[in-house]
């Protein structure tokens, strides 16, 4: 499997990681966003087109965790229209007419760059309360960040987050289980 994709600078990545940790904090029973690699997941999404095929859709049919050959770590090709849609979402419309059919789109790369900048270069050094205050002052950015943090915490590890399946383990969810699946008794009986 290819190494991690980086779009953000190390400083930006650190700020994002701290912000995600406020959204998904570590507890005794649950690793926080930092330990789960949630910022790596988001960075991978922002940099999806830095690799070919882009890291949008993991392959199949199985991950190899429960039998079968691992297929999740190769990525599927996008059609040219799908690429247009995903580049628009990620990179923004940038004045390109075909990306502005439904109006200008700012793009996640810029949303994150701006949001991270607005949190401040000293964000990592602030205490939790101050970090929450700054994040709450950017409700749109917080919502975007939280949405992606949830994906990064509990999506398949091949996308860069949910490190080693630790997000799934914490919540008692086995993740993808094909082709082994569950026995009929496991479906019907109380655990």
């Amino acid at each position: 499997m290819a190494g991690p994709v980086r779009f953000l600078s190390p400083q930006e990545h650190a700020v994002l990681e701290a912000a995600c940790e406020r959204c998904i904090p570590a507890t005794d029973a649950h690793p926080g966003a930092r330990a789960l690699g949630v910022a790596d997941y988001i960075d991978g999404l922002l940099g999806a087109f830095l690799v070919d095929p882009p890291r949008i859709w993991a392959g199949g049919p199985f991950s190899g965790r429960h039998g079968g050959e691992p297929g999740f770590d190769t990525y599927l090709r996008l059609s040219s229209l799908e690429e247009l849609a995903w580049r628009t979402r990620i990179e923004g419309s940038q004045g390109i007419p075909e990306r502005e059919r439904l109006g200008p789109v700012k793009g996640w790369q810029q949303e994150y760059r701006d949001g991270i900048a607005a949190l401040g270069a000293d964000y990592c050094d602030c205490d939790g309360e101050e970090q929450d205050r700054r994040l709450d002052a950017l409700p749109g950015f917080k919502a975007l960040c939280y949405e992606h943090a949830c994906e990064g915490a509990y999506g398949a590890p091949e996308y860069g987050g949910n490190r080693g399946g630790a997000g799934w383990r914490a919540i008692g969810f086995p993740g993808d289980v094909a082709p082994r699946g569950y026995t009929d008794a496991e479906v019907s009986e109380r655990p």
Partner: peptide, 20 residues
């Protein structure tokens, strides 16, 4: 799935407890 569950849970200290 758990991503859907997470999106319906609040961000912050409650998040991890509710998910567990």
């Amino acid at each position: 799935g758990p991503v859907m569950e997470a999106l319906h849970s609040p961000a912050g200290p409650m998040h991890s407890r509710l998910m567990v």
